Deep mutational scan, measured.
Amino acid sequence: LVRYRTISKIPQITLNFVDLKGDPFLASPTSDREIIAPKIKERTHNVTEKVTQVLSLGADVLPEYKLQAPRIHRWTILHYSPFKAVWDWLILLLVIYTAVFTPYSAAFLLKETEEGPPATECGYACQPLAVVDLIVDIMFIVDILINFRTTYVNANEEVVSHPGRIAVHYFKGWFLIDMVAAIPFDLLIFGSGSEELIGLLKTARLLRLVRVARKLDRYSEYGAAVLFLLMCTFALIAHWLACIWYAIGNMEQPHMDSRIGWLHNLGDQIGKPYNSSGLGGPSIKDKYVTALYFTFSSLTSVGFGNVSPNTNSEKIFSICVMLIGSLMYASIFGNVSAIIQRLYSGTARYHTQMLRVREFIRFHQIPNPLRQRLEEYFQHAWSYTNGIDMNAVLKGFPECLQADICLHLNRSLLQHCKPFRGATKGCLRALAMKFKTTHAPPGDTLVHAGDLLTALYFISRGSIEILRGDVVVAILGKNDIFGEPLNLYARPGKSNGDVRALTYCDLHKIHR
């Protein structure tokens, strides 16, 4: 019993810090008490220290592992850092350059016999395009090294910054494609005289377009951006097909006994025919423009016929181009109408809503002055909100995010209106959640004399007048207030005048 009563005193000691020596009952000389009392004092002292730490809000209350900052290894790049964003855009520009100039170089340097010394005699450094290609190869190699040090988000939505895990993730992902696209074939085969082989191998750079397509997928929600990307894709495919079309004609031209190829026909049409040795002929500019003209006309199913396939190889390629053109029509131009419709969806919704308003007016036989006010209010409210119901949009977000959005939407009023000066951010967040926005066209009466005042109004834009009878008592403008002081009276009061809008007004109100 003594032991039980001794232990039962522990909660009292913990909360009230009572010393055991003052209790005459606990001072009985028993061996059990002498053993338990020192333990009680020690526990009391420890609990006292913990309570003191909690009340003082000291940093040592938290466990040590929670006080440590997340460790980022040296030379690790955050995937959302500004440097990584700028670097990704730079790589994107280099990939676009590669997609345009690599097929052009591979096709127009394929057994090209233009006048001038061969590239091997001039030297590697004197070729501007080769120098640019070398810079692109170096940048792609540097990009691989950067990807080995860039964080990523795993399946659990955690940012991984450990170098080993980053390397394994990159090896399992895009490393092989990036490595093949970054191989400097110019340096590996330079001086061997195989410019045709170098041009063909350099087309491996186009593998990076797969990554670019995935990154550009984030802009699919913007109709104008999608339309622009589709047109660029169409032009890029036409450019690639033009390079292939020229390569076919250029390879067949020296081996044909009869002059029936499209390059021969082009030379005869523009007065620059090929001679018996295969030299001469149109310039590279004429060849490229004509090839691009043929691919565009074939892809769009126009086909004027002034550039036509004559050999079997050219006919087979033309059939493939027609098939590609039909697929592009289905996948690209078939979506253009939907994209344009999405661009004008706001206008369509406006006309639909206006039609419903006019049908309501016609069905209920609203008189002319009231009908005009109804239409003007709808037009003004639509121009202010673009038909978007803010309350319906915010309803799907958590309250903390709703408060931040409301604070942002009402920031101008909260910053410049005098009653809100000096208020804490928590108070402003709470008030912003209570605001209701209303609009009024010129001549609209917001409050009639004798109406119950259940709200306090803040003028965000425009001006109003307060009338008693036919006498203008006051004219209020931006950041002015009218209405009933909230919670100042037990019952809502009545208006002693009319409140009429002089201009288009936007008002925020808080109800009782």
Results as ranks from 00 to 15, higher is better:
65 Y>L: 07
65 Y>D: 07
66 K>I: 07
66 K>N: 11
66 K>A: 07
66 K>Q: 15
67 L>S: 03
73 H>R: 12
75 W>G: 07
77 I>P: 01
80 Y>G: 07
80 Y>L: 06
80 Y>W: 04
80 Y>D: 05
83 F>C: 12
87 W>F: 03
88 D>V: 01
88 D>K: 01
88 D>Y: 01
90 L>H: 03
95 V>Q: 01
97 Y>R: 01
98 T>Q: 01
100 V>I: 10
100 V>D: 01
102 T>W: 05
103 P>W: 01
105 S>R: 10
106 A>L: 07
106 A>G: 01
108 F>P: 01
109 L>Q: 09
111 K>L: 04
111 K>C: 03
112 E>S: 11
112 E>L: 06
113 T>G: 14
114 E>G: 14
116 G>R: 15
117 P>E: 05
118 P>L: 14
118 P>A: 07
119 A>K: 15
120 T>D: 01
120 T>R: 15
122 C>L: 01
124 Y>V: 05
124 Y>E: 01
125 A>Q: 07
128 P>K: 05
129 L>R: 05
130 A>N: 03
131 V>A: 06
131 V>H: 01
131 V>T: 01
132 V>C: 14
133 D>H: 01
134 L>G: 03
135 I>D: 01
136 V>R: 11
136 V>D: 03
137 D>Y: 01
138 I>A: 04
139 M>R: 01
139 M>V: 10
140 F>D: 01
141 I>Q: 01
141 I>G: 07
143 D>I: 01
143 D>S: 01
143 D>T: 01
145 L>F: 10
154 N>R: 09
154 N>K: 08
154 N>P: 03
157 E>A: 14
167 A>P: 01
170 Y>V: 01
173 G>S: 13
173 G>R: 11
174 W>L: 05
174 W>H: 03
175 F>N: 01
175 F>A: 06
175 F>E: 01
175 F>P: 01
176 L>H: 04
177 I>H: 01
178 D>E: 03
180 V>K: 01
180 V>L: 13
180 V>R: 01
180 V>S: 07
183 I>P: 01
183 I>Q: 03
183 I>K: 01
184 P>M: 01
185 F>K: 03
186 D>I: 09
188 L>S: 10
189 I>F: 14
190 F>H: 09
191 G>N: 07
191 G>P: 11
192 S>N: 13
192 S>H: 14
196 E>M: 11
197 L>H: 04
197 L>M: 04
197 L>V: 08
200 L>I: 05
200 L>A: 04
201 L>C: 04
201 L>S: 01
204 A>K: 01
204 A>W: 01
204 A>M: 07
206 L>Q: 01
206 L>G: 04
207 L>H: 11
208 R>Q: 09
209 L>I: 05
210 V>E: 08
210 V>P: 10
212 V>A: 06
214 R>A: 11
214 R>K: 05
215 K>N: 04
216 L>Y: 05
218 R>H: 05
222 Y>M: 04
223 G>K: 04
223 G>A: 08
224 A>R: 03
225 A>I: 09
225 A>V: 09
225 A>E: 04
226 V>I: 12
227 L>Y: 03
228 F>I: 10
229 L>S: 04
229 L>K: 01
231 M>W: 14
232 C>E: 01
233 T>L: 14
234 F>M: 13
235 A>T: 14
235 A>M: 09
237 I>R: 01
239 H>D: 01
240 W>V: 01
240 W>E: 01
241 L>R: 01
245 W>A: 04
245 W>K: 01
248 I>F: 01
248 I>A: 01
250 N>C: 14
250 N>L: 11
251 M>S: 10
252 E>G: 03
253 Q>D: 15
253 Q>R: 15
254 P>D: 15
254 P>K: 15
256 M>N: 15
257 D>S: 11
257 D>K: 13
257 D>C: 01
258 S>R: 14
259 R>W: 01
259 R>K: 15
259 R>C: 05
261 G>F: 01
262 W>K: 03
263 L>V: 03
263 L>Q: 01
264 H>G: 01
265 N>D: 12
266 L>Y: 03
266 L>D: 01
267 G>M: 01
267 G>F: 04
268 D>F: 09
270 I>T: 03
270 I>M: 01
270 I>Q: 03
275 N>K: 04
276 S>N: 04
277 S>A: 06
279 L>Q: 15
279 L>P: 04
280 G>T: 03
280 G>P: 01
281 G>T: 03
281 G>K: 01
282 P>T: 01
282 P>K: 02
282 P>L: 01
283 S>C: 01
286 D>E: 06
287 K>W: 01
288 Y>P: 01
289 V>M: 01
290 T>P: 01
291 A>P: 01
292 L>Y: 01
292 L>Q: 01
293 Y>L: 05
293 Y>N: 01
293 Y>M: 04
294 F>I: 01
295 T>M: 15
296 F>N: 01
297 S>I: 01
298 S>P: 01
298 S>T: 14
298 S>I: 15
299 L>T: 01
299 L>A: 01
300 T>I: 01
303 G>C: 03
305 G>Y: 01
306 N>A: 03
308 S>D: 01
308 S>K: 01
309 P>Q: 01
309 P>K: 01
311 T>L: 01
312 N>L: 01
313 S>E: 11
313 S>V: 14
313 S>L: 13
314 E>T: 01
321 V>A: 01
321 V>G: 01
321 V>R: 01
322 M>H: 01
322 M>Q: 04
323 L>I: 07
325 G>T: 01
325 G>D: 01
327 L>V: 08
328 M>A: 04
328 M>F: 09
331 S>L: 06
331 S>P: 03
331 S>Q: 01
334 G>L: 03
337 S>A: 10
338 A>W: 09
339 I>G: 03
340 I>Y: 08
341 Q>R: 04
343 L>E: 03
343 L>G: 08
343 L>Y: 12
345 S>A: 09
345 S>Q: 13
346 G>Q: 11
346 G>C: 13
347 T>Q: 07
347 T>H: 15
349 R>H: 05
349 R>D: 15
350 Y>A: 01
351 H>P: 03
351 H>D: 03
351 H>A: 05
352 T>W: 11
353 Q>S: 09
355 L>H: 09
355 L>E: 11
357 V>M: 09
358 R>N: 07
358 R>Q: 07
359 E>Y: 03
359 E>S: 08
360 F>I: 02
361 I>M: 08
362 R>E: 04
362 R>A: 07
365 Q>L: 03
365 Q>V: 03
368 N>C: 10
369 P>K: 04
370 L>Y: 01
370 L>H: 01
371 R>T: 03
372 Q>Y: 13
373 R>H: 06
374 L>S: 03
375 E>K: 11
375 E>C: 05
378 F>I: 08
378 F>R: 04
382 W>L: 04
383 S>C: 07
383 S>R: 07
385 T>W: 04
385 T>L: 03
386 N>S: 05
391 N>T: 06
391 N>Y: 15
391 N>D: 03
391 N>H: 12
391 N>L: 12
392 A>D: 13
393 V>Y: 03
393 V>K: 03
393 V>S: 03
395 K>E: 13
395 K>Y: 09
395 K>W: 03
397 F>V: 08
400 C>V: 06
401 L>V: 10
401 L>A: 03
401 L>W: 01
404 D>Y: 01
404 D>P: 02
404 D>A: 03
404 D>E: 03
406 C>F: 05
410 N>A: 05
412 S>L: 06
413 L>M: 10
414 L>A: 02
415 Q>R: 07
415 Q>D: 10
417 C>P: 03
418 K>Y: 06
418 K>V: 09
420 F>G: 02
420 F>E: 01
423 A>Y: 01
424 T>P: 09
426 G>E: 08
426 G>N: 04
428 L>P: 01
429 R>D: 01
430 A>W: 08
430 A>V: 07
431 L>Y: 01
432 A>N: 01
434 K>E: 01
434 K>D: 01
434 K>V: 05
434 K>Y: 04
435 F>H: 02
435 F>N: 03
435 F>R: 01
437 T>C: 07
439 H>A: 06
440 A>M: 15
440 A>C: 13
445 T>L: 12
445 T>V: 11
446 L>G: 02
446 L>Y: 02
447 V>Q: 01
448 H>M: 04
449 A>Y: 13
449 A>N: 08
